[in-house]
Amino acid sequence: MSTFVGLYNYWIVIVLMMAGLYTVIAKGNLVKKVIGLNLFQTSVILFYVGMGKVEGGTAPILVHGDGAEEVVYSNPLPHVLMLTAIVVGIATTAVALALVVRLNEAYDSIEEDEILEQDPTT
């Protein structure tokens, strides 16, 4: 039970990740696939942020004065890394949506099976 409750943040990550991956695989609508992909990438952001949290830790801003030595900080590095990952996620989504727009212009559809019907060899 303690592994379940104590590590609840990782369980959330796993559920989100699998929901995203399932959406990418199972849905035929290209926009839904992109949303699934986004969910999948976002779960990793949560994973890193959870990883950097130190129990009882405060925001990593240097404290001066009395008791400064006892202050516990959360690890800021994973959080900073995720800024980059967020940018990457947005860029991926932007490129994916641009492609969906172009696909819609070319095939007049954003359903994978309808596109494959028009062009079976892709």
């Binding site: 992909l37 490129v95 994916a96 492609l99 172009r102 696909l103 062009d119 892709t122």
Partner: peptide, 9 residues
Amino acid sequence: LMAGFRYLI
């Protein structure tokens, strides 16, 4: 376009 989209996913 579809090849690019698949590659992206």
